[in-house]
Amino acid sequence: MLSNRRLPDLKIRDLRDDYCEFELSNTDVSMANALRRVMLVEVPTIAVDLVEIEQNTTVLNDEFIAHRLGLIPLVSTAVHHMKGPFDDIGEKDFTDVELSLHVLCTSDDTQDVTSNDFILDHQHPEVYPVGYSDSRMQSEDAERPILIVKMRKNQELKLKAIARKGIGKDHAKWIPVATVTFQHKPQISINRALMDTLDEKVKEAFVDASPSHALSYNSVTKQVEVTETEAYMYDGEYEKMAQELHHPDLITITQSDNEFIFRVEGTGVLSVEDVIITAVDVLTAKLRNLQQALPPPEQNEGEN
């Protein structure tokens, strides 16, 4: 019986490499929240997972540096044809990307060791730190690299960093996004008849009651208008003001329970489009997996 199936709607408002805003409707909070949770914590990316330190005479200790390396975002487009350490691994699958780093400070000035000092794995040159540019061909418009440690003369850092596929549930360094949020779409309705009984000054004050500026006063038509529904932040200020004016029915604000506005901010590790599509795939795969794992029906189940 498929009559209980929802037919969701989706509209993209803005889509860039590192930002996406879309509206999801005709579905339920449980679906919106599941998508949010999966995007945050179950979409796989690549991050440094194991560090072998050969030489470290810098001021930071080995663990400290290993931790910093883990947090460097690595471009993870290769993650889709990579296997994680907990998957079934075949002979042709690859799980490890080996980055190396060797810096010796020879100058009298302080020297920065950055993500640009990494030497990439020549088998997997598609895995590199976000904003990476080879230190020999530094250009003006290159992004500023990520600082790992600062050195003084004769200090040395030599290490091998192994990057692996992982998910945010394991460690936050694998989270593919900066933030994912969804909000219920607000529904604001003004009681016109009641509003008309108020005079101009009061109307203007009413509009300014909430700092969210969801409402505005039109001086030509002399009416209070809803201009920016989504700017409303459920601060309750309009309702409070209505209460104070002894007209609690002046305005009604509710949250829609089947329209959601999603905002996804990427980190550069994966494009947000990729994150969203992968999140849907991951969630689908989870449910498929559950369906397959469901034990077969018992023969006498009907008797119960």
Binding site: R5, L7, I277, L283, T284, L287
Partner: peptide
């Protein structure tokens, strides 16, 4: 059935996106 319906819904979301 619940799982089947959810998988169908997710397919829709994916296609629409």
């Amino acid at each position: 059935d619940a799982l089947t319906n959810l998988i169908g819904e997710l397919t829709d979301i994916r296609d629409k996106f």
